[in-house]
């Protein structure tokens, strides 16, 4: 039951991130086509793309944490006995960092709401964006924390490398 719910959440986050990427591509295309063919670019293109980029990245943070998707240097194979300690360390560092990010984004969100900060053209409230980032970073911190204590040990697939 919990597994199913977890799977649904992961699928939902993945879908949101994927659609954000699609939207980024479409907005660039529409903006460039509008500017060159119709002399009417999207005035809000830049600010919406920034929010979409943030959305795409932050929805994938919990997913990456869950799938051990962050780049890891697995140079020296650790002895079996040290695995639990290593999990505690890696999960703890991840949880601490994303915890800090969640906390500080929330703090900035409150402040931004107080100032009434908003994007220049559409007036998208900065506080909403920051709250979203805070929530997703918080979720990532929870995933890292669970891993620190050995959750999903069985399917800790090998991390994929890239850059």
């Amino acid at each position: 039951m919990a597994r199913a719910r977890e799977g649904r959440l992961e699928r939902a986050l993945t879908a949101v991130g994927t659609l954000s990427l699609l939207a980024l591509m479409a907005i660039v295309f529409i903006d460039v086509a509008g500017r060159n063919l119709l002399n009417s670019p999207l005035p809000w293109g830049t600010e919406v793309m920034e929010v979409l980029l943030g959305l795409m990245v932050f929805v994938f943070y919990p997913v990456l944490a869950r799938r051990h998707g962050h780049i890891v240097v697995d140079l020296v194979p650790l002895p079996r006995a040290a695995r639990a300690a290593q999990r505690l360390l890696a999960g703890g560092v991840g949880a601490a960092l994303f915890g800090v990010i969640a906390w500080t984004c929330g703090r900035q969100a409150i402040r931004s709401a107080g100032y009434g900060d908003a994007s220049a053209i559409l007036g998208i409230p900065t506080a909403w964006v920051l709250w979203g980032m805070a929530a997703l970073a918080g979720l990532s911190a929870l995933v890292f924390l669970a891993q620190a204590f050995g959750a999903w040990r069985d399917d800790a697939a090998c991390a994929d490398h890239g850059a």
């Binding site: 500017r35 002399n39 009417s40 670019p41 005035p43 830049t46 600010e47 220049a120 053209i121």
Partner: peptide, 19 residues
């Protein structure tokens, strides 16, 4: 460069591009 300039350019009939 900024929102008020964007508004001004639009009013003047130019095409403002925010970059």
């Amino acid at each position: 460069p900024q929102p008020s300039a964007t508004q001004a350019l639009t009013l003047l009939g130019a095409v403002p591009v925010n970059k």
